[in-house]
Design a protein around this nucleic acid. Structure first.
Length: 793
RNA sequence: GCGAGCGUAGCUCAGCGGGAGAGCGCCGCCUUCACACGGCGGAUGUCGUAGGUUCAAUCCCUACCGCUCGUACCA
């Protein structure tokens, strides 16, 4: 975490097995027990024979697997020759059958309900019962019932008063009151034996291939066995009610909102929570059993004797599910049950950041426990991050082993090293082969962090793209180089003299400095980007924040501002000083803005920047930038746009005619409108320097033969006299293409404007916009037509 | 089965009612004094299919096709 640049309050680092947290856990258990919300019961649980523990529903991974469906025939007692057919995917469980269920409305079986069947191989009699859970349409409409080894059957057995017979033990071997020949067999062997034996006595019906849903342990991939055992449970229903209400009332909200449904669906279908585990680590359950009586003592402190007076007490050997202690995290870490200052200050917490697959494990349980014990939601907002997936769209997870170590991206790795790290995992190997066929060059932490931020789109997973990471590495490099340029040009700059304008909230002009257009423009754009980033971060739209940063630094600052500022650094002292002041202001602020996403490089540069002493020693602990409205300058933004467009037009013409970048070209700008002409005249110098141009500006003029021209905003012409250089055919083709585009636009707009319904129903602003575009495109087309005419045929 | 998401440029993905976007890749020019991990310019799309609502639909609604995830389960 430190390598990845996490900025945390490390003093509050906690582990759920710490003394403080353990105390909370015990307090919590005892109170829930006293409230009647924790109880001990003998029920079916998901048992993993390999891990030798109960596991929660969430830790069971269900998938369809290939199997078989066998038909078994049970003879009706007292009616030799009459058989009832049942179907099963697990024939070995017939040894534990204690009944057969049919639907009460099923006429085929109405006469048989209440009678008994002879269970083959066992010579036991089992009753036929009626239960509505049976689907009459499926198979024969009769279901064998094994209450001790199937969840549905357990419920059915309970409703119909059937006994439970455990015939599989915790190691997955056959056991109990069954014919001796099956005792100790594995499930697999028992299945073969039972099928063969039934076949031998003619009580096996048809066998067909069948797709069966099968649950496997997430950790060991072993088939999960429903197993009857004594466990501790939490009655979740009353807790869930409050947790549902809190979200419905908006006291806690999910971002992105779509996860609310997932949470609600689970909460509304919640089941009792089995919290005991047969593992060697964890919080031991604070319950003691007496050797002399049946009393169970649940206590905060280890009891010395039972109610009955006996001192012979044994503590329950089981431990609590890790999610039990995790559920208390929002308050146990703050000192609960003590009423600490931290608890008062930080509960409820503001935002929980976690992955969507943790909603059930953590979020839901924190909500239930927080509301029950604190009477208040544990956090206002739950932000669900995207999940980084492998090539098959599966979550990269340590337990699955399909991870790309982030450090391989940070430090770089060869293809072979990556393959070795994949440890044969198919999804990872596919991912590496497709995305990193030549290994990975070192990208650095900042680039990886920036990539993840830029790829964090609401409700979407991330399949990490090395091309994009590389692009963002280049961005970090760009930032570094822009900073090098700045530092080179900041030599001899006295930040304390410039301090008043560096402080937040001041306007540069208030301090008496006369700024040029690019300076006013970049300061204005800086405010815009601060605003965009702030807004995006407040709404957890990380990709938008990252994009705004990217475009400001690369597009506005590097491509335009720094280029335009270069002459100032070679100018006279006052001019140089202002240029330095503006540059350091913009860069320093930008670094603070970027720091949460790009912590390392920004810190490095920031510490090197000349700045007033009161700014402190580390970027980590400075204030985050806020918008200074005084520096927003719409005039500068508009004028600069015009300058951009003119330079862009000249560059396009230059490139089209292969004029080398070093060679100056002469252009004539014709701007009929006085206001815009004035802007161009004022910033003529900037246009000439940045575009390497010789510029003449006028209102209008005669057509210039052998020239190429571009039209900006409908009325401004940028004309390059390129006698001898212009390829007339190429220029004609180019202009014709432009005309075609304008013509298409015009006919589209005209169609709209001639539609009365459009005029009547569309908002005025939209109609106005279309009219404006029509004028612009028409003017443009006309000027292009004139230019074409000039070129001759 | 139920729930959710996704199908937009060669790739990874934004946009989500009124002029189709970004990054990478691609093409052309450039060893310009921060940066070739660079600069400048350029090309590229029946916005999954079919209907519907609307003056107007990539964007809303319905159905379908394709892909993915979560969850349940019929023995």
């Amino acid at each position: 975490m430190t390598l990845m640049g996490f900025s945390l309050d490390w003093e509050r680092e906690r582990f759920t097995m710490d003394e403080g947290a353990s105390k909370s856990v015990r307090e919590n258990f005892v109170r829930l027990y006293e409230d009647g919300l924790i109880y001990r019961a003998n029920r079916l649980v998901n048992w993993c024979c390999d891990c030798q523990t109960a596991v929660s529903d969430l830790e069971v991974k269900n998938a369809d697997e290939k199997g078989h469906l066998w038909e078994l025939k049970y003879e009706v007692a007292g009616e030799p020759g009459r058989f009832l057919t049942v179907a099963t995917t697990r024939p070995e469980t017939m040894l534990g059958d204690t009944g057969v269920a049919v639907h009460p409305d099923d006429e085929r079986y109405s006469d048989i309900i209440g009678k008994t069947l002879i269970l083959p191989l066992c010579d036991r009699e089992i009753p036929v019962v009626a239960d509505t859970f049976v689907d009459m349409e499926f198979g024969s409409g009769a279901v064998k019932v094994t209450p001790a080894h199937d969840f549905n059957d357990f419920d059915c057995g309970k409703r119909c008063g059937l006994e439970t017979r455990t015939i599989i033990n915790r190691d997955g071997e056959m056991c109990g009151d069954i014919p001796e020949k099956y005792l100790g067999l594995s499930i697999k062997d028992a299945r073969k034996a039972v099928v063969a034996d039934l076949d031998a006595i003619g009580q096996l019906g048809e066998t067909q291939d069948y797709t069966v849903p099968r649950g496997r342990c997430e950790r060991s991939a072993t088939v999960i066995e429903p197993m009857l055992s004594e466990q501790w449970w939490v009655n979740t229903e009353p807790l869930a009610k409050k947790a549902i209400a809190a979200v419905e009332e908006g006291r806690t909200k999910f971002v992105p909102e779509l996860w609310t449904k997932t949470y609600m669906h689970w909460m509304k279908n919640i089941k009792p929570w089995c919290i005991s585990r047969q593992l060697w680590w964890g919080h031991q359950i604070p319950a003691w059993y007496c050797d002399s009586c049946d009393e169970i003592t649940v206590a905060r402190e280890t009891p010395s004797e039972c109610k009955c007076g006996s001192k012979s007490l044994r503590q329950d050997e089981d431990v609590l599910d890790t999610w039990f202690s995790s559920a208390l995290w929002p308050f146990s870490t703050l000192g609960w049950p003590e009423k600490t200052h931290a608890l008062r200050s930080f509960y409820p917490n503001a935002t929980l950041v976690t992955a969507p697959d943790i909603i059930f494990f953590w979020v839901a349980r924190m909500m239930m426990m927080g509301l029950h014990f604190m009477d208040e939601v544990p956090f206002d907002t739950v932000f669900l991050t995207p999940i980084v997936t492998d090539e098959d769209g599966n979550k990269m997870s340590k337990t699955k082993g399909n991870v790309i170590d982030p450090l391989n991206i940070v430090n770089g790795a060869t293809y072979d090293e990556l393959v070795a790290g994949a440890k044969g995992h198919k999804g990872t190997l596919k991912f590496i082969k497709k995305n990193m066929p030549k290994g990975v060059p070192a990208m650095g932490v900042d680039a990886l962090r920036f990539s993840l931020a830029a790829m964090t789109m609401p409700g979407r997973n991330i399949r990490i793209s090395m091309d994009r990471v590389e692009g963002y590495r280049n961005f970090i490099n760009k930032l570094w180089n822009a900073s090098r340029f700045s530092l080179m040009n900041l030599e001899g700059f006295d930040p304390d003299k410039f301090a008043p304008v560096l402080a937040e909230g001041n306007s540069l002009e208030e301090s008496g400095y006369k700024l040029d257009l690019p300076q006013r423009w970049i300061l204005s754009k800086l405010q815009r980007v601060i605003g965009e980033v702030d807004e995006a971060l407040c709404e957890f739209r990380f990709s938008e924040a990252a994009n705004a940063m990217y475009h400001f630094v690369w597009g506005d600052l590097c491509d335009w501002y720094i280029e335009m500022s270069k002459p100032s650094f070679r100018g006279e002292e006052e001019r140089r000083f202002i240029a330095q002041g503006v540059l350091v202001t913009v860069l320093e602020t930008a670094l603070r803005l970027l720091h949460p996403v790009i912590p390392f490089v920004t810190e490095e540069i920031w510490e090197k920047l000349p700045k007033p002493a009161h700014f402190g020693d580390s970027l980590m602990v400075t204030v985050y930038p806020t918008v200074n409205p005084k520096l927003i300058d719409e005039d500068a933004e508009r004028d600069m746009q015009l300058v951009h467009d003119v330079i862009g037009a000249a560059r396009t013409l230059r490139s089209t005619y292969n004029v080398p970048p070093a060679q100056k070209i002469a252009i004539e700008i014709r701007a009929p409108e006085a206001k815009r002409r004035a802007v161009l005249v004022e910033w003529q110098g900037i246009i000439q320097t940045v575009g390497r141009l010789e510029v003449t500006i006028c209102e209008s003029g005669e057509p210039i033969p052998q020239s190429a021209n571009a039209i900006i905003g409908g009325d401004i012409e940028v004309i390059v006299a390129l006698a001898g250089l212009v390829d007339l055919d190429a220029e004609r083709a180019r202009i014709n293409k432009e005309i075609a585009r304008a013509t298409k636009e015009i006919s589209g707009i005209e169609r709209k404007l001639s539609n009365e319904k459009f005029l009547a129903r569309a908002p005025d602003a939209v109609v106005e916009e279309q009219r404006r575009r029509l004028v612009e495109e028409t003017q443009r087309k006309e000027l292009l037509g004139q230019a074409l005419e000039q070129l001759g045929q």
